[in-house]
Amino acid sequence: MISVDSALTDMMSAVFADYREGHDSPTVCDAAFWNRLNELGLIRLTGDEARGGSGASWLEAAELLRTATYHGVRVPLAEHDLLACWLLDQVGLEVDDARRTACVLDGTGTATDVPWASWSDRVVVAWRQGSSTRVADVDGRDLHIVPGTNIAGEPRDRVSVDVARLSGDVAPDTLIDTLFLRGALARSVQICASFDRILELAVEHTRDRVQFGRPLMRFQAIQHLVADIAAETALARATTESAVAEVVRSGWDDPRIAFRIAVARSCTGHAASVVVRNAHQVHGAIGTTREHRLHEFTTGALAWRSDFGSVYHWDNLLTGTAMAAGPHRLWAYMSS
């Protein structure tokens, strides 16, 4: 996978590391830090430069998500840039400095588990109306929002509105499906970043913790647990980076994108069970405390693997694709 400019990655890392220092965990982005990210051109990193964005690709966006997650900062960069503002760009609506998230309304005008809705100024909503898809940029004060949180402490809210009162713009029929895939890939990137941090914490703990006169890392059973974390992390990262690279190379209209993302989400979803279980076994009782940072990353990995499709959903999609391809076309499909 093509690397991101080192100066950009160093800047991202410094910004999030500086903000994380001195804050309690988990660290949820505040308005002042959001404004700081805006000044640096990071909240609309992939937006069209002609419309006020920074014109970056998904490579840079993935690095930004990875860096924020690695430092344990909860910030709706994916929701704002990759979902909400992308929707507005697709239908030609104006994008300003308001904080945004996005959701898809059902037939009753309701969406559940909407990320960061109660934190946002505006919510970009999409819904089916007859045979067409519509998009509207709605002020949060015009929505009925019931706040909630996921197990990682991030806002996951219930949003409802009378769609008859909305004058939405007509959007391409594929827009909602693409929105779902974009959200799924963003979560895969975040899960992998959590795995990287979990692995580092596990290695650090087993190196420093002495039991029965020797470091934990000298016990073979502990070595096996950490090795499994490393193996699952590597597999999850490889499939996710492959999906990101395919998006950059071929764009979102390529039919292979859904398959690549499904592979990434299936691998990261199954890996989360192993990585989280083994990490907490390695850390023992201290890993369950609020004072230790492990929970910041294990709860994130478990929460995000259910966003934009469950593991069951992505496994079913892969199974259906394999059955449809048949024994003679499956390898060509997978290796193309």
Rank of each mutant, 00 (worst) to 15 (best):
M1P: 13
D5K: 12
D5W: 01
A7E: 12
D18N: 11
H23I: 12
L42Y: 08
R51I: 08
G53C: 07
G55W: 06
S57C: 09
L59P: 01
L59A: 14
E60L: 07
R66V: 00
A68I: 05
T69M: 07
T69H: 03
Q90P: 00
D97M: 00
T101S: 10
W116H: 14
S118Y: 08
D121V: 06
R122A: 01
V125L: 14
R134L: 14
V138F: 01
D139P: 06
V146H: 11
P147N: 06
T149W: 11
G153H: 11
E154M: 14
V163N: 02
G168P: 12
G168F: 03
L175C: 07
L175Q: 10
I176E: 02
L179Y: 15
R182P: 02
I198P: 09
E200I: 02
E200Y: 10
V203C: 13
H205I: 08
G213D: 02
A221K: 07
A221F: 00
I222P: 00
I222R: 11
A230Q: 15
S242V: 06
A243R: 08
V248Q: 10
G251I: 12
W252Q: 06
W252K: 05
D253M: 03
A272Q: 07
S273L: 05
V274T: 15
N278P: 04
V282M: 09
A285S: 10
G287C: 05
T288C: 09
E291L: 11
T298L: 03
A303V: 05
A303D: 13
G320D: 13
A322D: 10
G326M: 05
R329Y: 01
R329W: 02
M334T: 11
